[in-house]
């Protein structure tokens, strides 16, 4: 199968993720969309690794997974505490950083 198709798929997934981040209000969904974007990147890395015939991309994909796992831990903790204090998981409610 042509590896470029994987890249198309990765771009599609990334776009879906980015759109989700931008237009959804629920923090959990936004979070999931971020994960989607990360995985799109991983897919692209692996596809490139295959295309170039070396393992660099695959190794970076591992790194990304590790970082993503760490990010999930921190991010979920933030979302939970946000929900506890404001009784809402909407990202628009947490808009205090403005003049």
């Amino acid at each position: 199968m042509n590896p470029v198709n994987y890249l198309y798929l990765a771009a599609l997934l990334f776009s879906i993720g980015a759109t989700g981040v931008l237009i959804r209000r629920n923090a959990i969904v936004v979070f999931m969309c971020i994960e989607l974007m990360l995985n799109a990147c991983n897919l692209a890395f692996v596809a490139f690794s295959r295309m170039h015939g070396n393992l660099d991309g695959q190794i970076i994909a591992f790194f990304t997974m590790v970082v993503a796992a760490a990010e999930v831990v921190v991010g979920l903790a933030i979302i939970v505490s946000l929900f506890r204090s404001r009784h809402s998981a909407s990202v628009d409610d947490a808009s205090l950083m403005k003049l």
Partner: peptide, 17 residues
Amino acid sequence: LRKLQNGYARSYAVSML
């Protein structure tokens, strides 16, 4: 310029993107 600073994470994300 300060109008850009609206506190919505989404809009920051748009500018980053």
